[in-house]
């Protein structure tokens, strides 16, 4: 009963992912690397993850993110879409991204 207003968000190509307010992506000058700061952990996203996370601004849809990345990486949208969606689902399940 208490769970009724809390449901797992599922990614779709129309989701507009947004990095949570309490998850902070920032450049760390000490280590010369991008860090994602979250309540329990510091993540060190690799280049691809970083490119996805930077587009999690609540304005881009997943479809647009895929198109944007396809352009950047010179790849076919349908090839990268599953990976992008899987990534976003995982980050949503970790409460770091709102879908």
């Amino acid at each position: 009963m208490m769970e009724s207003h809390r449901q797992r968000a599922i990614v779709s190509d129309q989701s507009r992912p947004l990095l949570k307010r309490y998850a902070r992506l920032q450049y760390d000058p000490v280590r010369s690397a991008w860090a994602l700061l979250s309540p329990e952990k510091v993540f060190w996203p690799d280049e691809v993850s970083l490119d996805i996370l930077k587009l999690c601004d609540g304005r881009h849809t997943v479809l647009q993110i895929v198109a944007e990345l396809a352009g950047q990486y010179d790849a076919a949208g349908e090839d990268i879409a599953p990976d992008v969606e899987e990534f976003l689902q995982e980050w949503s399940d970790r409460f770091l991204v709102t879908l």
Binding site: E3, R6, Q7, R8, A9, E40, S92, D93
Partner: peptide, 9 residues
């Protein structure tokens, strides 16, 4: 059961 609803560590 609560994946994506509540993170339990």
């Amino acid at each position: 059961r609560l994946q994506g609803i509540l993170a339990i560590d």
